[in-house]
Design a protein around this nucleic acid. Structure first.
Lengths: 204, 204
DNA sequence: TATTTTTGATTGACTGATCAATCAATAAAA
DNA sequence: TTTTATTGATTGATCAGTCAATCAAAAATA
C-alpha cells in the first residue's frame, strides 16, 4: 500500500478529521485515537506527521481560519462599493459553513483553548483584528475615522456575540435575522453621519 | 480539629477554589487535586462532599450565575426609570467583578463545557434568557414591542461579544468603552422610535 | 463529673482507566 | 538496497474515584 507522497494527503485527512471530531465532540478534549480513527489511520501515524497532539490541533485552527479568510477575500472582491463590501463581510461571517452547530462548537473550543495555548491565541487575535479591520476599512469610506472605529468595534462584537449565543441553541436566531441585526446596527449608527461622510468623500 | 458543621464551609471553600483554579488555568481542564489543594483540603474530601468532579463544576457555574443575578436585581432596584434600569443592566454586565481576565476565562470555559454538559448548558441558557429579558422588559417601555425584541437581541449579543473579544486581550477595550458602545447601540436604535413610543406610552 | 459511645470530618494509599508519545518491526515502492 | 509509509505493542504519566482507617467533638451514660 505505501505509495510515495502520502504526507500531504494524510495531513489534510487528519486536519479534516480533527475538525469533525472536535465539532461533534464539542470540545478540544479529544484523543489522538479518535482523530486517527476518523481519518482511517493509526494514532501512531498522526504522531508521525504532526509530532504532537498540540501541533495537530494548531494546524487545525490555522486551516480553519485560512478558509474563513479565503471566503472573505473572495466575497469582498465580488462587492463593488464600500457599503456592499461591508455587507459582504457580514454575510461571510454568517455563511452557512461557519454557522453550523459543529463549527460553532469548534470555535468556542478554540476560544477556550486560547487561554492556554499562546499559539492558538495568536491565531484568534489575527482573526479578530482581520474582522475589525475589514469592517473599519470600508466604514472609513462612509463616515469619519473616529466613528468608523467605534462602529467597527461594535459590529465585530455583535458578530462574535451572535455566534456565542447561537452556540446555546436557546431561542435560536436564524442566520438571516443575525445578518439583519448586524446590518441594522451599522445602518442605524451610520444614518446620522451619512451627510458629513458624503461631504468628506467629495473632499478626498 | 473536626468541628461539626463543616460541610457548608467546605462546600463554599471548594467552589471558590474551583473558580480561582479555573480562572488562572483558563479552562475547565482542572484536576480535583488542584482544586482541593487551593481550598486547603484533600482531594478525597472534595469527592466526599460533591460526589464527582462534574458536580463540583456544576455547583461552581451555578454559584457564579447566582452572584451575577443578585447583582443585577440589586442594580435594577436602585434604578428608577426604564432607561436607567437599562443602563443598570449594562453596567452590571460589565462590572469589574465579572470582567476580570480570570472571570472571562471561566465564562469561556463554561460556554465550551456547555457543548458537552447538558446541565451547564441549561444554566447558560438561563443566563442568556435573563439578560435578554431584562433588556426587553425595559425596552418595551421605550418603544414598540417588535422593535424592543430586536434591540434586546442585539444588545445582548453585543454584550456577550464584547466579553469574548476581551478574552483575547488584543487591543483590549476598556470597560467604559464597552459600556459606551452598548449604550450607543441602544440610543441609536431607539432614537428614531422615541416619538412613536411616547405616543404609545400615553395610550397605555 | 468522669467515662464511654457515637458520629462527622478528614486523609493517605490505592485502583483502574485513559492517553500521549515512543519504538521497533514490516511492507512496499523507488 | 534504500527510503518512505505504516502499525501494533508498550510505556509512563495523569487522574477520577474508592476505601479503610484515624481523630476529635458531641452525646449518652454511669
Amino acid at each position: 500500500m505505501p505509495k510515495v507522497g502520502m504526507e500531504p494527503v494524510r495531513r489534510k485527512a487528519l486536519v479534516d478529521a480533527a475538525m469533525r471530531v472536535i465539532g461533534d465532540h464539542g470540545s478540544l478534549t479529544v484523543t489522538m485515537s479518535e482523530i486517527a480513527k476518523q481519518a482511517g489511520v493509526s494514532p501512531a501515524l498522526a504522531h508521525h506527521y504532526f509530532g504532537s497532539k498540540e501541533q495537530l490541533l494548531i494546524e487545525t485552527v490555522r486551516h480553519h481560519l485560512q478558509r474563513l479568510r479565503d471566503s472573505t477575500v473572495t466575497a469582498m472582491r465580488a462587492a463593488k462599493t464600500p457599503r456592499e463590501k461591508l455587507s459582504a463581510v457580514i454575510h461571510v461571517s454568517f455563511h452557512a459553513d461557519q454557522f453550523t452547530p459543529e463549527t460553532i462548537a469548534a470555535w468556542l473550543a478554540f476560544y477556550a483553548e486560547a487561554q492556554r495555548s499562546e499559539e492558538t491565541r495568536r491565531f484568534l487575535v489575527i482573526y479578530a483584528r482581520r474582522l475589525r479591520s475589514n469592517l473599519l476599512a470600508n466604514l472609513k469610506a462612509l463616515c469619519p475615522g473616529e466613528d468608523a472605529e467605534r462602529i467597527a468595534e461594535g459590529a465585530a462584537a455583535m458578530i462574535d456575540g451572535l455566534y456565542i449565543r447561537q452556540s446555546l441553541r436557546s431561542a435560536p436566531i436564524s442566520i438571516e435575522a443575525s445578518i439583519a441585526l448586524t446590518e441594522d446596527y451599522i445602518n442605524s449608527l451610520l444614518a446620522p453621519l451619512s451627510a458629513e461622510a458624503a461631504v468628506q468623500r467629495t473632499e478626498t
